[in-house]
Design a binder for these strands. Structure first.
Lengths: 207, 207, 207, 207
DNA sequence: AATGAATGAGACTTCATTCAT
DNA sequence: CATGAATGAAGTCTCATTCAT
């Protein structure tokens, strides 16, 4: 028991080390420019050893993306669920997104690149998973908006449209932050994002 | 003269045919899953002939993306420049984006995928071009916003933030439209986008 | 026309050269100990070139066996069909078998080894072809025996049993000849084989 | 003593279990498509344990073939030596061959496949052993024939030729029985085999 | 004695690119 | 100009064997 437990733990440790190195290299060079030999080298294993943990390069890639996506979505939802009021939830949504992005630059780079969308034509597993996760995330945000409307915190409007808008704004700031070499913390952008999303850009005079 | 002109025209015709087929195939299968043989087949030329027009697969890909990007940006700017008032410009910006996207689904698919970002490590040409174009597009939008603020059509706020926000919202709707199998025309979303961007989502009561 | 004809001819020449070298090496080392690189070297082509002619190592092997089998069976049947009387046909059968074997030692070595029977589990194409050919050869021989019985050249007996017997004797002599380093020509064994097959071994006194 | 004896017995038990499973799997899939892991799994040992009994995959294969061959030859010789008269010996030879074959279909399948003939080029041990056994079996049969001739049970003829013929006929019937899915017992073929071998196929009228 | 995770050499195959025709 | 057969480097994956536990 003790014994098999340690084994299991060691197995997970090694697996994580591989995933970690894979994340680093895939992020830097993309799926197709990364070789199994590189990942093996970086993680200190022999090539054959990688295949004890993942049955193919594609499966390794898929596993990594999957686990990161799950982590991202669960962190964000956790943060959002931690507060009550709609406006606070929206703020936490933005903040949690930015927080994850700042701490997972590489993987986010890979995620927005969406390379998983064209792995071997037969394999739509990853593609489907990414889309399903995306849809369910949109649904989750839509739920927040919906309740906000009911509580009259938000104006009456299609909640899906609100969800798409806030997610788009978030992604745009992240993207810009990536390109601008991350000079200022993304966290500084939370207030402007909320301001635009909640109140729009129109001059109040002319409104 | 006459002669060399016809030659030049023929050359461009062939080149465009290749680019057109390349766009189709690259869009469907991605850069790495597309072979030169496929493009040659589809465009009715021999493999070797492709190399008379483009010195490598990467250069061919780069040329295609480049030209499409240029086309997209110039169409959008043309539309925006065709109207006067800030609010109209913003509307045209959204409308022109959506219009281009609806008529170039494949290539847009490829663009958001951003595969060009990880071509052979040495080659940063395409990457740099994509980023430069993006930055200059943001600058262009920022200019609109800036003038809108001056004209008091828009509230006082960092114009870059406004630019990022509107672009993010646009992209989000496009992305959603792609995934939703394009059931409703993207054009229907122009008004909601403008509404959110200009007036925000907050209930006016609580505002 | 002239042009494409020469091309076709050259193609066949190269293809045959590859098959010829493949036959040599496969015969000596077996399917699994033979590498594509070796065949490429031996036939003076690059590895990739082999794949212009055969889509996989297995397909190359299969093609070679197929063509040799077809050749063998057609040569033997041709010889047998060239004579009239049953006894002559049986003699020609033995003689043609021995003749082919003497001139195709390598490939026969491979054939009796029957390695084709366990190529990748999925692929039963070669296996099925070998069996089908064998069965149809047995049927062919059975036909000869059957007519021999009708003509009263042969005694009344199941013709299939006769066919199996003569084929077994032939193979046994070939096998022995292979092992004995081919000292005496196999052709010398035609008469003894016929003698045994036709008249048996029993002493006539005690018969 | 007691102790070391039990050890020795256990060792043999394990070794036999491995050989038994190896026989099953090698027969089904051939030498090269069988992995040590499969044999380990099937026999309930760890991979490393197999190497305590056999120093390589090849040695394991060799051992299995060797022991089966020895068993086959000794069973056949035992049966043949159990009777006196030449004709009876020949009958027992056929019967014992068929009996072994019927009870060891898998291994016989493997034997006629002769995969052992092309193990790693350096290793001719198995090849040599198979040939030596074959030669000595032929010699044994030749001895029977020789005595039969002396006793005037068989006609005057090269005894080696007789030996080759009977062995070929036996193998041919076995081969056919394999392909025909074993519908009728091989034992039914003993009489026809003897009939042909002893008396030939020629019509007695024309003889 | 027994294990089985780790190894890494080596095989097959693909495909961008070249160059003789 | 145009062709497309030929090339061969490079990548993925397998599996017999080893050795620390």
């Amino acid at each position: 028991m003790e014994r098999s437990k340690r084994k299991e733990m060691e197995f997970q440790l090694r697996r994580n080390e591989i995933l970690h190195q894979a994340e680093r290299i895939f992020s830097a060079k993309g799926f197709y420019n990364t070789t199994m030999a590189e990942i093996a080298d970086a993680s200190g294993f022999a090539i054959g050893t990688l295949y004890l943990f993942f049955e193919s390069k594609e499966k390794l890639y898929t596993a990594m993306i999957n686990e990161k996506l799950d982590l991202m979505y669960s962190e964000i939802r956790g943060a959002v669920n931690g507060v009550e009021k709609t406006i606070d939830k929206i703020e936490m949504l933005v903040r949690a997104h930015f927080y994850f992005v700042e701490n997972n630059v590489d993987i986010c780079n890979l995620l927005i690149r969406g390379e998983g969308m064209t792995l071997s034509m037969g394999n739509t597993v990853l593609r489907d998973k990414i889309i399903a996760d995306y849809v369910s995330h949109i649904d989750f945000i839509e739920g927040i908006m919906h309740r906000g409307i009911e509580m009259k915190s938000l104006k009456v409007m299609e909640s899906r449209i609100m969800a798409l808008a806030i997610l788009g704004i978030i992604r745009s700031f992240f993207y810009d932050w990536m390109l601008s070499k991350k000079e200022t913390p993304l966290g500084d952008k939370v207030d402007p994002v909320l301001d635009i999303f909640l109140k729009g850009v129109k001059s109040e005079v002319t409104g």
